[in-house]
Simulated assay, not measured.
Amino acid sequence: MPQIDLEDVEVVRLDDRFSRQARSLLYHSYKDEPTFKYLLDAHRSGYKQRIRATIRELIKLHFSRGEFVLGVIHKKEERLIGIAFFSDLELKMDISNQFLWRCKMLLTAGFEGTRRYVEYFNDVQDSLPVKNHRMVSLIGIHPDFQKQGLGKKLLDSIHELTDKDNNSIGLFLDTGNNKYLNFYQSLGYEVFAELPLGPQKEYILYRPNPNYQEAAA
Rank of each mutant, 00 (worst) to 15 (best):
Q3C: 07
L6K: 10
V9D: 13
D15A: 06
D16P: 00
D16V: 00
F18A: 14
R23W: 08
L25P: 00
L26D: 06
H28Y: 11
Y30N: 11
D32M: 00
D32H: 02
E33L: 02
P34D: 07
K37Q: 13
L39F: 02
L40S: 03
H43E: 15
G46D: 10
K48I: 00
A53T: 02
A53R: 01
T54P: 00
I55E: 05
I55C: 07
I59H: 04
L61G: 07
H62Y: 11
H62P: 00
F68S: 10
F68A: 10
F68H: 07
V69Q: 08
V72C: 09
K75W: 07
E77W: 02
E78A: 12
E78N: 15
A84V: 14
F85V: 05
F85Y: 11
D88L: 01
L89H: 13
L89A: 15
L89S: 15
E90D: 14
L91A: 13
M93C: 12
D94L: 02
I95D: 12
S96I: 00
N97M: 08
Q98H: 13
Q98E: 15
L100Q: 05
C103Q: 15
C103A: 12
M105Q: 14
T108W: 05
A109K: 05
G110W: 03
F111S: 15
E112N: 09
E112I: 10
E112D: 13
G113S: 05
T114Y: 09
R116A: 10
R116Q: 12
Y117G: 09
V118W: 08
E119R: 14
Y120N: 10
N122M: 09
D123V: 01
D123G: 11
V124E: 12
V124P: 04
D126W: 07
L128Y: 04
L128K: 07
P129K: 04
H133N: 08
R134H: 15
S137W: 08
I139D: 09
G140N: 07
I141W: 08
H142E: 12
Q146G: 04
L150Q: 04
L150V: 01
G151L: 04
G151M: 03
K152Y: 05
K153W: 03
L155S: 02
L161E: 12
L161R: 12
N166H: 09
N167T: 12
N167K: 12
I169K: 03
G170N: 07
F172Y: 03
F172T: 00
L173Q: 05
L173E: 08
L173T: 09
D174L: 01
G176H: 04
N177Q: 05
N177G: 06
N178Y: 06
K179A: 10
K179C: 04
N182M: 06
F183S: 09
Q185F: 00
G188F: 04
G188E: 11
F192Q: 09
L195E: 06
P196S: 14
P196F: 03
L197I: 03
G198H: 10
G198I: 04
Q200I: 13
E202N: 14
I204M: 09
L205P: 03
L205I: 01
R207L: 10
R207A: 06
P210K: 13
P210S: 14
P210E: 12
Y212H: 15
E214N: 11
A216H: 09
A217E: 10
